[in-house]
Design a protein around this nucleic acid. Structure first.
Length: 854
RNA sequence: GCGGGCGUGGUGAAAUUGGUAAACACAAGGGACUUAAAAUCCCUCGGCCGUAGAGCCUUGCCGGUUCAAGUCCGGCCGCCCGCACCA
């Protein structure tokens, strides 16, 4: 009994595909195109199981679509800028560029060992000037088109990474990578006007039918559209007015105060002459933004002494506070507080003894009895104590209030978004330089096009903390392109999400002189199927949608939505182990015998914990290269596909890998050492087919049909199950008669072709063993099911009595209702239950079920 | 708090529009082959009723609709994820 030699086969077939140029993509308007893309990796050093899963999923789609006749584009590249390279430089004294290039070389080799069907000619790395020079130009085009601005603003500062973070990169008040609590700092930053597309980005989600609903909802929430009103309050003794945003203009008669954010311009103005207020503002800025800090923080305010004038009832006293719970970044940074109908306002009012006047009564409640104590009433109801609004519903009252305010010129209908502009400046070295020169006279001057790219200097020092570009002795000193006087280069670099916001478009013509040649981009885009982790639901995926729109404005592309289809894959998990000192242990250092986990070397007992996402910190990782060395790429690929649906978490187990390995060898033996003869390639079908051979052939066609549907819907685990089922059926067919020989060969050839997207090397080996060399499966069309074989002559029908299964009957396909009823009633069991009586009712669903109601 | 998802054997999971629950595997147990082991092959494998049957129960829990509910509706319970002082 021989084992499949995966090492030799995988090397051989990878070379064969390369020689044949199977995966080279070229534009061809005569064929439908299909662009499959997996989120490109950061070259961190080595691939992990998450990569293996991601790229296997993409490869199945790519190979399947290619076999179906699509002109497939399936590229791979490197998201190569980022902080880890700088950290490596600091720790190991390796230049970031060298570190990155070495990692890319390792990971490229690892990916190639997986047998992925990439067009490697299109490989790109975002840290190459040939790549980032184009985005410097894009940035300048955005600037020229009013999509970029520079602003001094309060920003999220990550004290560990020593850089600014975008709002999307702050998770629960902490840096998305460092995990350090984010601080507020005031800095001059470049912003991309993503908010200009807020409504368009929101509406565009409706068209993304092949995106997971979950992701669409997350983006919808992130954009956070709300409808309400902007209301201007006159302030006693001042000429300017205070503009507030509210979603509840209906509650205006219940107003008890106005409050502004600590960073509101009015607060700064007043704080200049008021040290108490200045202290309060400073305290607010120190306050943490994490969930815990917010929950612990009391609703506090500082009474400015100003009075706002109620637009309809001057007798309502509205003191103006600076309050710690009002955000400058949302709405206008100012609110009116209605304590009866907003919990925060109520907490605040209770702290400061402000009036609590209910203006909305719950339906079916006597208006006189409505009292508010500790819990604000925020639901729908009927307006009370509100002059011209009394008796209206909340919705009607909102509309009427806004109409009245507009008539008076004291307010307008307003839509507000939670989304804020994307700050792209990062105070780091290993990123794309922002192509701007700061001149004392001319301000921020774009680097002239003929001086692009602004390349990163290679000789930099990481001895000092902070940005090496800023410390560089010469790099930043240049003359102003406008006036020629000494000036200073921008030393910030782009957020690395800038690079990943357009790489998918660059793949259409990687290496071209032009950034995005329109013919190629128009042919290949949008990406038909994008595959990656859910963690980018509102990061990369939102930025890319915006970026594509901005590129369209500048004439680079002709479409809005870059990704027509999206699949988000689940995590790869593994059991965790700790030794008796509580230290995490690698699975490879643990053996399990008789249910007891032990240290493989010392034999000391080990505590087995729950399964969690593979992570270096918990050491519950399995190195893909070790698996590929021991079992081959096909086994690893099959295992990641066969146990769980792609969007669910995958539990990595040694037993599961063994199972995949056993199946692979079983298939190999089925063609290399068959128990029964298999005939020769191209043998004509026998004139007569016996029953067994015929039913195997039918099963083959059913499997083709089923697997094709499964792959189209990404039900890869089901596709594998079906192919295994067919394998079982093929092996069960004994007999050396010509019809059996023919049916077995037919089944095995189809199995090889159906399994090829999952286990491409084995499939080629089987195909050759079956005598089909030199043809490659990679260049063979997807098998088609013959509809004539999909219907059976007979069908098994379930027979129920009162909804409980009592037996089955076998009838000709499409037998009449009467036939089915007669056959069902004739069953002994049915007769026993009826005991000679006649049924009350018989329901017949043709070809499916008969239910006898006794 | 708001939004979304999930709950099926010992485990991962299947179950087109409501129509034979548990396909396909993993693990476990038993057997064959073997001097032995590995590999391979075969059998059993949701639960209960002592053996047994036209048996009963079973898709988180309770109820409803229906000839028929894992699937639809209402109400609970539990777990997971996203957002969160967003006015």
């Amino acid at each position: 009994m021989s084992r499949y030699n995966f090492k030799e086969n995988e090397r051989h077939w990878q070379a064969a595909w390369e020689t044949a140029g199977c995966f080279k993509a070229t534009e061809d308007s005569s064929r439908p195109k299909y662009y499959v893309l997996e989120m490109f990796p950061y070259p961190s050093g080595r691939i992990h199981m998450g990569h293996v899963r991601n790229y296997t999923l993409g490869d199945v789609v790519a190979r399947f679509r290619k076999a179906q006749g699509f002109n497939v584009l399936h590229p791979m590249g490197w998201d190569a800028f980022g902080l880890p390279a700088e950290n490596a430089a600091i720790e190991n004294k390796v230049p970031p560029a060298k570190w990155t290039q070495e990692n890319i070389a390792t990971m490229r080799r690892q990916l190639k060992s997986m047998g992925l069907s990439y067009d490697w000619d299109r490989e790109l790395a975002t840290c190459e000037p040939d790549y980032y020079k184009h985005e410097q130009k894009m940035f300048l085009d955005f600037l020229a088109n009013g999509l970029v601005y520079r602003k001094e603003s309060w920003v999220n500062w990550d004290p560990v990474e020593n850089t600014v973070l975008a709002n999307e990169q702050v998770i629960d008040g902490r840096g998305w990578r460092s995990g350090a609590p984010v601080e507020k700092r005031q800095l001059s930053q470049w912003f991309l006007k993503i908010t200009a597309f807020a409504q368009d980005l929101l509406e565009g989600l409706d068209g993304l039918k092949r995106w997971p609903e979950r992701v669409r909802i997350m983006q919808e929430n992130w954009i956070g559209r709300s409808e309400g009103a902007r209301i201007d309050f006159r302030i006693e003794g001042r000429h300017d007015s205070l503009s507030v945003y509210t979603t509840r203009p209906d509650t205006l008669f219940g107003a008890a105060f106005c409050a502004i954010a600590a960073n509101h311009p009015l607060a700064h103005e007043l704080a200049a002459d008021n040290s108490g207020l200045a202290d309060f503002v400073a305290e607010c800025n120190r306050m943490g933004t994490s969930e815990a800090a917010i929950e612990a923080a009391e609703k506090r305010g500082f009474n400015t002494g100003l009075r706002a004038v109620h637009p309809f009832d001057p007798s309502i006293d509205l003191p103006v506070y600076v309050a710690n719970f009002v955000l400058m970044e949302y709405g206008s940074g100012a609110i009116f507080g209605c304590p009866a109908h907003d919990q925060r306002d109520l907490d605040f009012a209770n702290n400061y003894g402000l009036r609590v006047q209910p203006v909305v009564a719950p339906k079916d409640t006597d208006a006189k009895t409505v009292t508010i104590t500790d819990e604000a009433f925020a639901d729908d109801g009927i307006l009370i104590n509100s002059d011209f609004l009394n008796g209206l519903s909340v919705a009607d009252a909102k509309a009427m209030m806004i109409d009245r305010l507009e008539q008076m010129g004291q307010g307008t209908r307003a839509v507000n978004y939670r989304l804020r502009d994307w700050g792209v400046s990062r105070q780091r070295y290993w990123g794309c330089p922002i192509p701007i020169i700061h001149c004392g006279d001319c301000g921020a001057v774009p680097v002239p096009e003929d001086q692009l790219p602004v390349e990163l200097p290679e000789e930099v020092s990481f001895d000092k903390p902070g940005n090496p570009l800023d410390h560089h002795p010469t790099w930043k000193h240049v003359d102003c392109p406008a006036c020629g006087k000494p000036a200073r280069r921008e030393t910030d670099t782009f957020d690395t999400f800038f690079e990943s916001s357009w790489y998918f478009a660059r793949f259409c013509a990687a290496g071209a002189d032009e950034a995005l040649p329109r013919a190629a981009v128009d042919y290949w885009l949008p990406v038909d199927q994008y595959i990656g982790g859910i963690e980018h639901a509102v990061l990369h995926l939102l930025y890319s949608r915006f970026f594509t729109r901005a590129l369209k404005v500048c004439g680079y592309v002709g479409l809005d939505e870059p990704f027509a289809g999206l699949m988000t894959q689940g995590m790869v998990c593994h059991q965790t182990f700790r030794d008796n000192s509580g230290k995490w242990m690698f699975p490879g250092d643990v053996t399990i015998k008789g249910g007891q986990a032990r240290n493989a070397k010392t034999g000391a007992p080990v505590t087995a914990g729950r399964s969690e996402k593979m992570s270096k910190s918990k050491r519950n990782v399995v190195d893909p290269e070790a698996i590929i060395d021991a079992y081959g790429a096909d086994t690893a690929r099959l295992f990641t596909l066969s146990d769980s649906p792609p969007d669910r978490d995958l539990e990595w187990t040694d037993a599961g890998v063994d199972g995949a390995w056993r199946y692979l060898n079983r298939l190999w033996r089925a063609v290399s050492e068959p128990n029964h003869p298999l005939g020769n390639a191209g043998d004509a079908p026998p004139a007569q087919l016996g029953h067994d051979a015929n039913s195997l052939i039918k099963a083959v066609h059913r499997t083709i049909e089923g697997v094709t549907g499964d792959l189209e819907r990404f039900h890869f685990n089901k596709a594998v199950a079906r192919i295994r089922e067919l394998t079982n059926a093929a092996e069960a067919l004994a007999g050396d008669a010509p019809d059996c020989v023919y049916a077995r060969r037919f089944a095995l050839e189809i199995i090889a072709r159906l399994i090829a997207p999952m286990m491409p090397h084995l499939a080629e080996a089987m195909w050759r063993e079956l005598g089909n060399a030199p043809q490659l499966i990679a260049e063979t069309d997807w098998p088609a099911a013959d509809p004539a074989h999909l219907v059976d002559d007979t069908v098994t029908i379930a027979v129920q009595v009162n909804g409980k299964l009592r037996g089955t009957i076998v009838l000709p396909q499409d037998a009449s209702k009467d036939e089915a009823e007669g056959a069902a009633l004739a069953l002994d069991k049915v007769q026993d239950i009826l005991q000679g009586g006649s049924p009350k009712k018989v329901i017949v669903v043709p070809n499916r079920i008969v239910n006898v109601v006794a």
